[in-house]
Design a binder for these strands. Structure first.
Lengths: 193, 193
DNA sequence: CTTAAGGCGTACACCATTGTTCGAGAAGAG
DNA sequence: CTCTTCTCGAACAATGGTGTACGCCTTAAG
């Protein structure tokens, strides 16, 4: 009965776990404090069933975070970061913007649950790539060096977050935002003439 | 007994209202969901007493919002917006940055309580000045025109918010942030060479 | 000093949310 | 088909927050 050393869940159980994770990601991405009830309802599953798979709300949020991180890491690792740092940054931004739109406020939900240490570790993966690229651009003289790298990373983060809010608010369309994020970040990073 | 047509509260009552508002602003500025209990405790006042002055948590948050708005409006109306738009923007940013640091997350608390309509109206006051300045800069050819004004405003907002977070996180000092906010926003607005 | 307004703590009702228990029934695995 | 696993709803306890009622004490105002 066990194809593995471990339990081997039934098919509908695995299906339900998937539904719950999907629903949780979708809802948490726009409202970090949705109730377990709403998540279960959106997943087409009873609340008790959900608790059968995740021992607590915190555990669910953590599972969602891990999935988001994995998805993010996978998407970003596919990006070619070679060549002119500006072009590489454009590619990286494009992908990151899609991820920001998709996952948005999950980070906030996570920060309510994960320890600061875990949060730091979780952030590190994706931001490492951006950081490396920014540093290379600085070394090659195409990105300005009169600001701390950490500040430049924070600004990129802020622009992405702000763009997400602006789209949600209806100030700009999602398509326009792609271009605007790109141009804005490049303007921030560019060396002053 | 009534110097006015109205009630004329006792001296300690007015003092307590002040304490509560001060404490509420301080606490809400870093955590938008503090409990009434904590606010009362921080104000050195019983929870019941607080409810004697504000009928509900929402009413308190609204009063705080009004006070913050008034304070903001007063601070910003003192800024000279004439002359080179870039210099005027620097002055405006300096003041806005101080306000952002001081009041921070009050906006978030407000958005949980006020209707979207009220929120819009409340935001309009302060953002009107920034908007007018950005538009003048565009007309005079010193700010770029290949982005929507709304986007530029959103970006300024995002940079300020991000700076606040970066300082809180310890990535940069508050003093450095002043300069960095200035340089970053100017880079975003400047016409491309 | 007298009086009324205000402050304080306790206690209570109310609500939403989390997490658990139970038993009947549906659905997958063999 | 049978057996085991899983689902589901209802019901329950616990928690933590909001808002109210009451009685006693303190303090400002005249």
């Amino acid at each position: 009965m066990a194809t593995d050393g471990v339990a081997a869940k039934r098919a509908d159980a695995r299906r339900n776990v998937e539904s719950v994770l999907d629903a949780a990601i979708t809802l948490l991405a726009t409202d970090p404090r949705v109730s377990v009830n709403e998540i279960a309802k959106a997943a087409g599953v009873g609340r008790v069933t959900l608790y059968g798979h995740f021992p607590s709300r915190a555990a669910l949020v953590e599972a969602v975070s891990l999935r988001v991180i994995a998805s993010t890491d996978q998407a970003l690792s596919a990006i070619d970061l070679a060549g002119d740092p500006r072009d590489a940054m454009v590619r990286l931004l494009e992908a990151t913007w899609q991820l920001t739109r998709r996952f948005g406020a999950v980070v906030i939900a996570a920060s309510d649950v994960l320890t600061p240490e875990e949060m730091r570790r979780v952030h590190e993966g994706p931001s490492r790539r951006v950081r490396a690229l920014v540093e290379r651009g600085r070394d090659e003289g195409v990105f300005r060096r009169d600001m701390p790298v950490l500040w430049q990373l924070a600004t990129i983060q802020a622009v992405l977050h702000g763009a997400s809010a602006a789209v949600h608010r209806g100030d700009v369309t999602a398509d326009d935002a792609t271009r605007l994020v790109r141009d804005t970040v490049l303007a921030v990073l560019a060396v002053t003439p």
